[in-house]
Design a protein around this nucleic acid. Sequence first.
DNA 1: TGACAAAGCGACATATATGTCGCATAATAA
DNA 2: TTATTATGCGACATATATGTCGCTTTGTCA
Lengths: 196, 196
Amino acid sequence: MSQKGDKTRQNIRDTAYRLFAEKGFKEVTMKDICEATGLSRGGLYRHYESTGQIFLEIVNAFSDRQQSEVLTKIERRIPAAVILEELLAKYAEEMSDDENSISLAIYEFYSNSAISKEDNSVKKQYEIAKEVWVELINYGISTKEFSCVNPEAVFHVLVFAYQGVRMYSKLMEIDQKIPKQIVGEIKRLLLKENDN
Amino acid sequence: MSQKGDKTRQNIRDTAYRLFAEKGFKEVTMKDICEATGLSRGGLYRHYESTGQIFLEIVNAFSDRQQSEVLTKIERRIPAAVILEELLAKYAEEMSDDENSISLAIYEFYSNSAISKEDNSVKKQYEIAKEVWVELINYGISTKEFSCVNPEAVFHVLVFAYQGVRMYSKLMEIDQKIPKQIVGEIKRLLLKENDN
DNA sequence: TGACAAAGCGACATATATGTCGCATAATAA
DNA sequence: TTATTATGCGACATATATGTCGCTTTGTCA
């Protein structure tokens, strides 16, 4: 494991990420990655033995990153509405960024892989996000900032709408205002003062 | 074009549909379809020259079917809440039916096809659904049954959450109650009496 | 600097999917 | 029944991706 090797592997992952985001998982071959990186077949196989292996490394590096600064904010008693605002802004922003999204590739990958439905990174990310959101909403209810009947239900509306948008944006021009509309409606579901 | 040929083509489409629903688009080859139908290579190619051609015929037959009985119900002044109830029930039911869903295959197909983002059947179905929903919600507002701030926004929450669920259900066990939660929250966004 | 390991190369063997073609068989109509 | 056409067959040629291997080049460290 030399420095050169590390650099090459990083380059392979970065290049592959672009290809996966652009074309999905199945559409990318080892040959494509060779050509895009400038490596030869032997050179590439020296480091990775399949597109699946490369893909998994990318995805796992991804899900490790995500974590709950939200929970520490709750502990520090920052108002729920403020935390909500920031979190929704992040969701809205990510919804608009289809260029760099490998969502579709992830779904393509896991939907046909041998990896159990109960033990893939999609499931894990869903569980983590759910925990954080339910915690946040309950906190907001306890401080009387939110008036939410069913925290889990609101979370599900948000997370699936979010994924729906990311998916659709691969297929058609998504109006920039749609992410804003969605987080707007989520806010209406949570905040008292917007009810009529 | 004989009866036998029609029957064969129908059988090919039915079989291919199952395969696409199960494995996605890219994962299905002409060879797979041969084996699943019992046809030989030559026999299959006699009728269809690619998986893409078969897929498009299936998808188009699909989107032709969908149409607006909703609009006629509005004309007949059936209460908006009643129409809403029926429509949401249909959405919830479809969300739960991942076995027969080719959503993922459709997205896979169009996301890499040469077909314009502005001119694919996904876009078309979206436009049709949007028109119907906005019509329905405005009707409900006019009869004072709904108290909706932004009809289009509510539609977007629903349609994207719906697609998100269909997609996710390919990847992990989706709790049966989730579709109900989602349509429940949509109702809360529309109906006055559920506000607190 | 010399020796050893890591990285890189590209031809090759293998595997799999595509698309074609001449021939066989089954349906249909005169 | 027979001529004609549609359907079906499977071997074959083609194309493309995979994975391997001996060899060369490059980096690293004593």
